[in-house]
Design a protein around this nucleic acid. Structure first.
Lengths: 199, 199, 199, 199
DNA sequence: GATGAATGAGTATTCATTCAT
DNA sequence: CATGAATGAATACTCATTCAT
């Protein structure tokens, strides 16, 4: 494993544990076992580490969703697969998710910064993926005729909100079936199919 | 208006605009028109300002929800009223909401800190309010027999996630009916009533 | 007891415990149960508290020594009485002694400051008292013909040094007879009398 | 000379002149001709500078005494050599001695702090050195049968007290023979030898 | 006498970042 | 690539002191 990866690993662990702002680059260097200067040889600045973590993670995330959607038979199936995948992914990569759910520098959310643009770009893709599912579902009859834009936003916000909630306040999210229940929640709201299974 | 309020107002504006970490106490003092030392006369910490903002806002929020729930006729009505109120409140107090949705110090989410305990406490109450609605709805027949804990968590996470999403990335949330659509989303998922209105 | 005394008492306790510099006036006020402003109503400034403590204590000290000397039969007796009294007094007033043995503001030892002048003045008197004893002893034959100035300085320095040592590093000074042994040490060195009691 | 030494030198001079508390780190940096941050690169704390000064000085002091004691022929000679050396050393290193005799942070004398432990450790060694001299003297007949522990403490306290006295209140200690007179004072008190030279 | 809000200068310390080696 | 000494600007926080009430 390269020194660069050592730095990234150390950063992920420390950022997740103590937050980005509360983690000095010196601590990252120490944990990575490298000189502090090396960080700035591999990354433009401290925020660059964060950007790297985000970009790498998000790319995989978006790519996997893309293939999921293609494989699904109906729009609803695709959407629910996305939901399922989102939480599985968040669970698998929980440390990195935690880093990105904690204290981000303000400019990460501003569309004027480099990092902000990247995030917005990825967010747009992610929204479009969800939108595509819903649209497809409305056309193939698997999803009710819900408002496209709004529902897209709702589903996406739900995913982000819930995984963030769980990550940040884990003490409140001890229900093992919670994630599969999100699927049910969405299915009940969106599926055109009559749900007979209601007791 | 007292000097303490001046400080709070200035802090809310600046924290919302630039983020908590990117706002030095000197800037707060300057905007408030007071000496920097006065901040620490009225608040234990820089973080103390944040705690105060949260506590004050959250108290009103929880109180109003309490009365809403009492007034509602059914569990479902109560729940949807909570949803409606949440977004209206977030809109009204959007600046303060923005402050609390941005970069919080890491220990605000740790249950070991003073602030973390307060947040957890309020979160517990908010969760219980939602839970009460759902439980009531399941009993009065307005809500399907959904899993109590999980659904509570989902609804609460949805509210937080969506208002945070809108606040942090406003460019993605330009749909005027979005909030009322959340109600619909939940109603479809939770209402036991046959929904004939589906076109 | 007056509020002024409350302040003094609180200050003595806190200064002794944590040091003068590490004790903010706010802590003194709090412990005294008064408003911080009141301190500056009764004392010119923070150092004024210290000056007051010193002056009050030192006055009694010097006065009592004065009477002791008068009562003594020989110069040696007088000197040893001073030694004995010094340690008894330091023991009795150990808290105040501790305050004055800890971290004094730099200007307390500078002869240019108000406080420095006062300390120097008292020190001069104390030195003269010892000198008087030795001189008298040399004349009445109880004390050897030791150099006056130097021996004065040595005895005085010994007293201060030893009580300070004990106060500051109490773990090293656990010998109960230590103080009476100082008397013996001086007697052996200064008494003209043949000491037959040597075993 | 390294930058670290520049800092130490500057600190010694300024601490001695104005006191530790009255000397801001900025002043040290300025005098040393380095950036203020460098101080904290080389020392943990402002207090760390002080600890370093003490440790370095004390180590030499204790080492030299060790060799002195070995070279001495009798216990009394050893003890008097220690006395002589102490004052010579204090004179030579008067600036550093002044630093350590002035306003030390309160926790330097507390056995709970890092610095306090170090000081206590060195103090123990210094006491043992004196004790060893006296014990040896009592065995080889050069020193009277004085109480071991108490006399040790007295001699050590005298050394510290006198050099501190001279450093802090130099106006009172203008007697050139004072230090050699301390030797005489101790010899008269401790030497078993008949002193015929008494006029 | 007594309060405590308000001041504002002071200060240790942090930390991202640079750069000579 | 790699180091780590050095920078210097930034900053939270302290605290003696004042003063209107």
């Amino acid at each position: 494993m390269s020194r660069k990866d050592d730095i990234l690993d150390a950063a992920v662990i420390l950022f997740a544990k103590n937050g980005y702002f509360a983690t000095p680059t010196s601590a990252v260097a120490k944990k990575a076992g490298v000189a502090e200067g090396l960080i700035f040889h591999h990354f433009k600045n401290k925020a660059g580490i964060l950007t790297h973590i985000f970009a790498e993670l998000s790319e995989v995330y978006l790519l996997e969703i893309e293939t999921l959607i293609k494989k699904a038979e109906t729009g609803l199936d695709a959407l629910l697969a996305v939901v399922r995948f989102h939480f599985a992914f968040a669970e698998n990569e929980s440390t990195k998710f935690k880093v990105l759910s904690r204290d981000l520098p303000a400019d990460f959310t501003s569309p004027h910064s480099e990092a902000g643009k990247l995030m917005a770009e990825h967010m747009t893709i992610a929204l479009n993926q969800v939108k595509k599912c819903i649209d497809r579902g409305r056309n193939d009859g698997s999803i009710k005729d819900v408002p496209l834009e709004e529902t897209t936003f709702i589903v996406r916000g739900m995913l982000i909100g819930l995984s963030r909630f769980k990550i940040i306040m884990p003490s409140f999210s001890i229900h093992p079936n919670m994630y599969s229940e999100v699927e049910n929640f969405c299915r009940r709201s969106l599926s055109r199919q009559e749900q007979i299974s209601e007791p």
